[in-house]
């Protein structure tokens, strides 16, 4: 066994330096390689995984800076750099939801619906309220989320407990367009009607067939 004369300790393992004082330990002539075995595996440093991320952040910042710089030098009537900035923010919000370490696909879908709905409202309002967000985007987002959730649950063989709560949340969202119709905010009613109808059917299915499950799930998730 190796011995550090300075620290007066025996050293096991194959290290050439004393772990305590960092001095190089002279090897005993009598020792063969057999006597020296490593006690811990050498684990290589993990390589840079986030290079693409870094490039994207860099490009975003550069794009915003350049557009503001150009706008300052050559002013135009509309404030387009703001649009670039908001556009990039919207893109990043969506991206964060997608790449976030949520290994939970149903949760991801719900977040996507929320963020897409908010962004569409924001952009619609910002570009002179033509009503396309509540006419089409929100009802269609809710509906496609329901379908998507069912398909992914079947493909990934998720157990009912895994997605039932999210299906419930989405079905409740899907009823919101009912208020659009009631208050006459929408001029194209078909997407809203279909969304509300399918939500009610989904809700009925959840409560009738999975009533106990949903109760148990809610009890578990909401315990205080």
């Amino acid at each position: 066994m190796l011995y550090c004369d300075y620290c007066k300790v025996h050293i096991s393992g194959k290290g050439e330096k004393c772990p305590l004082c960092g001095n190089i330990i002279p090897k005993d002539n009598e020792m063969t390689d057999k006597d020296i075995t490593d006690t811990f595996p050498t684990i290589p440093l993990s390589y840079e995984k986030h290079l693409i991320m870094k490039i994207m952040i860099f490009v975003s910042i550069a794009a915003v800076t350049i557009s503001f710089a150009i706008e300052t030098m050559f002013p135009t009537r509309i404030n387009w750099p703001i649009l670039v900035l908001l556009g990039l923010i919207s893109m990043w919000l969506c991206l964060i939801i997608i790449i976030q370490k949520t290994y939970h696909i149903s949760k991801k879908i719900i977040w996507m619906v929320v963020i897409v709905s908010i962004l569409s409202l924001f952009w619609d309002w910002n570009t002179g309220w033509k009503g396309w967000s509540i006419n089409y985007v929100i009802p269609i987002a809710c509906m496609s989320a329901m379908i998507l959730m069912y398909i992914t649950a079947k493909i990934l063989k998720l157990s009912v407990n895994d997605y039932i709560t999210y299906a419930l949340i989405d079905a409740i969202f899907g009823i919101i367009p009912l208020s659009f119709i009631i208050f006459g905010w929408v001029n194209v009613i078909y997407p809203s009607v279909i969304s509300v109808a399918s939500s009610i059917i989904t809700l009925a299915a959840i409560f009738i067939f999975q009533g106990d499950n949903i109760k148990a799930e809610l009890h578990k998730r909401m315990h205080i």
Binding site: M1, C4, C7, K8, V9, H10, I11, S12, G13, G15, C18, P19, L20, C21, G22, T39, F40
Partner: peptide
């Protein structure tokens, strides 16, 4: 690793045989 060194050196200078293993 100074704290570790002082700690174990105290033990060895007071007659306790110490065998050191490290993952670094």
């Amino acid at each position: 690793t100074d704290i570790q060194r002082i700690f174990f050196q105290y033990l060895t200078t007071n007659g306790v045989d110490v065998e050191i293993t490290s993952n670094f």
